[in-house]
Nucleic acid binder design. Structure first.
Length: 172
DNA sequence: GATAAGATCATCT
DNA sequence: GATGATCTTATCA
């Protein structure tokens, strides 16, 4: 079943952990790609210096301040798109970055978006759109299969760079 | 194995 | 005009 607004309207770290083992579904024309989410990162609120919303509500980050379940996609380093899902209640800016998936060789958030043809045309989609969403297909992930780690590429974020807000799925 | 640099542009100052 | 939620390739050890 497809994850709805209620799933995303929770603590961001809990959402990031629970997204492991879920299926990311991308529908493009007659083609549908489904991939198991294996790596995520949580970005929590304006206090988190690694979170884009820490600089305030701008045209780009506005979606993070909105209701949960929406997509947040941006271009980084002029080359790669990154896919996020907005979490927590409206007014609290937070999101989960999808870093890697299992079916199309997932090595990172930029490569993932390239493989699945995800770009800014999919930005700010509600959770019930028909192009990109996440499904629960009944895979249960035991606590022992989840590994925590530091977030990647945010060394500028002071004390927040060492937060263990990245989650990877072991085995498969 | 580790570290460094280059690609390249939307967004913010 | 500066700066990245990255990735690839090159160079050194």
């Amino acid at each position: 079943m497809r994850l709805d607004k209620d799933f995303y309207n929770r603590n961001t770290i809990a959402v990031a952990r629970d997204l492991l083992g879920k299926f990311l579904v991308r529908k493009k024309g007659r083609t549908t790609i489904a991939a198991i989410i294996t790596e995520t990162e949580a970005y929590c609120g304006q206090e988190d210096l690694a979170c884009h919303a820490s600089k305030g509500c701008t045209a780009r980050t506005k979606v993070m301040f909105g209701p949960p379940g929406f997509t947040y996609i941006y271009l980084i380093y002029g080359m790669y798109h990154c896919l996020n899902f907005v979490t927590e209640q409206e007014g609290y800016p937070a999101a989960v970055l999808i870093r890697a998936v299992d079916i199309p060789k997932g090595d990172g958030p930029g490569k993932l978006c390239r493989e699945m043809s995800i770009d800014k045309t999919l930005n700010v989609l509600p959770p019930d759109n028909n192009q990109l969403w996440v499904e629960d297909r009944g895979i249960l992930v035991p606590e022992s299969d989840i590994k925590e780690g530091k977030r990647i590429g945010v060394d500028y974020a002071g004390a927040w760079k060492d937060k263990l807000w990245r989650f990877t799925l072991l085995n498969g």
